[in-house]
Design a protein around this nucleic acid. Sequence first.
DNA 1: CTGTTAGCGCGTTCAT
DNA 2: ATGAACGCGCTAACAG
Lengths: 355, 355
Amino acid sequence: MADVARLAGVGKMTVSRVLSGSANVSDATADRVHRAIGMLNYQPNELARSLRSLHSRTIAVIVPYLYDSFFATCAHAISTVAKQHGYSVILTTSDEEQETEQRQTNLMVRRRIDGMVIIPAPGDDRYLRAEMYSRVHIVTLDRPLADPRFDSVLVNNSAGTKMAVEHLIGHGHRRIGFLGVGRELYTMKARYAGYRQAMMRAGLAAEPYMECRTPEQAVEQIGAALNRGQPLSALFAANNLTTRYLLHALNTLHVDVPEQVATAGFDDLDVADILQPTLTVVRQPVYQIGEAAANLLFERILRREFPSTGRRVVLPLELVVRSSCGCHANAQGNSKAAETVPARAERAAAHSRQN
Amino acid sequence: MADVARLAGVGKMTVSRVLSGSANVSDATADRVHRAIGMLNYQPNELARSLRSLHSRTIAVIVPYLYDSFFATCAHAISTVAKQHGYSVILTTSDEEQETEQRQTNLMVRRRIDGMVIIPAPGDDRYLRAEMYSRVHIVTLDRPLADPRFDSVLVNNSAGTKMAVEHLIGHGHRRIGFLGVGRELYTMKARYAGYRQAMMRAGLAAEPYMECRTPEQAVEQIGAALNRGQPLSALFAANNLTTRYLLHALNTLHVDVPEQVATAGFDDLDVADILQPTLTVVRQPVYQIGEAAANLLFERILRREFPSTGRRVVLPLELVVRSSCGCHANAQGNSKAAETVPARAERAAAHSRQN
DNA sequence: CTGTTAGCGCGTTCAT
DNA sequence: ATGAACGCGCTAACAG
């Protein structure tokens, strides 16, 4: 920078001002500076800038995995919003482990990031109360934190599940199973609760939670549930992963859908309408969830707000009725045949882009 | 840090030494320092460290999109390797636009990242010759750069495609179409070339490249190709996206697979074995590609090597034969029915993890 | 409108 | 084995 200043015949301060686009520089000198920058191919050191200015124009994003399309799409949305604000994103994965998450959030604080978007791993999240986190803006996604200070973006998992299960009940099913991954996850708990509500309201017995962590486990569990005395006639899969396991198992067991067993699930798959049968699902507005979280975060960052009570944004779900539930039983999987039922959202939030 | 030093009754320098794990500190004082760090909840400022030490323990990853599972899985692999080395990852998307990529690489240099893993957007990549890039290690993935200085990890796209197309030819097909996304992409060019080779070697006429950028375009193109005088009897889809478009189109057009039209494609889908029919595909070792690239990068970073001729690692493909090609025509989509044919790899590279 | 002074939080270079 | 001074590259706060 000193070189640039010398070549332009000005002080370092003026160069700095030009770089920050500060107003108080005459066009003539600004031009000279720009020319000097071009000549020397000068690249400002963002590290030094951040050190001095106390903000790094960087946010951290922590998701469990990146190969889950839900998380990846959220990350994409956040990254896109960040780019619009001229921010960079440091992205890391927690692998659903609290300890990893904790190590990473800690590292991010040491890197002086301006904010974080986290999909919290299960476990005790009180570590975020530590004083070191009090100066960084935090927004969570998909799962809330116990501490009410932090903003979060969610969907109404139980209502969405209830809607889908009620739809299955409407088809006359009385024994409906629920498949989930780890019970410790917030979303799984909420969805199972919605399932139970739907069953109980219809005067039906809720089945125990079927945990499917692997395709093999799914085959085993589902096989047992279909071969017992009073076999299940419908299954609800709690997310995109269990949906795949479910379909895999039904294929392996040579079970026809929806004739022998009807299905529905949480999360839309990008192949949901080319599968046979096409899948009836509760669709989350995935990209919008990430986008809303990022908008929330940047609002806090730009306003330097650390509220004692964070906002909780709930985005709407929709039930996409295709044929795996028993509707359109002889439709050829044409996506135009799908009907969409918007769910009632607890609080629909309007998000305007800042800046 | 000054506070820590005062509390521990030592100089700042000693604290610094303790943090870096430097040898020349007596155990007694080291203990006092650690205690002081704990008391004050001191968090070292990585920005200042980086400014001083000239390396940030951060790498950049630039991919076109994050919602494409191929790219997301690569990113996940890179992120995992980086974490093992104690590095952070700044991840950005180029949206397949050179200009965005250029802006982002530039920003990364200003952030003084130690290295970059790039999946280059199509276009003239000579901008990387600029002097500013000469001090950062660069590895590409999936697509090579013109400049031979940079390491890259690739698969043999043409050989893989040839293998699959020859398999279709083996089923007796003579009019086989090729579906791709943008022709400007390296992988699309290479795969189309492989397709042409396979066709020509069999004495068949290669069809023109069918560009499918949207589901609608796919329906249109495929509809025309199946309704013309000499209709196609098989189709090859050049990646995961076109595979989805292809299946969607065939569904919409009520075409039976593989009876009316056989298909094969590049890239395995995680639902490939629950689709009806199950898909015959050329599978890339996606995670390993990302991992290999990251290992290559860290090797360069740790050895501070800037070779004039980079390495080119080619990873093996395999043909996963399921039923969409016409094999196992009455198999029930059991994944155990799939046969796997490893492809000849040009150069199989052994990668040992550093450190 | 522009320059000067000071210091962001560390680590390297010397001393001791 | 430990500490003091200096500087990494930049900008906030004041002068002029």
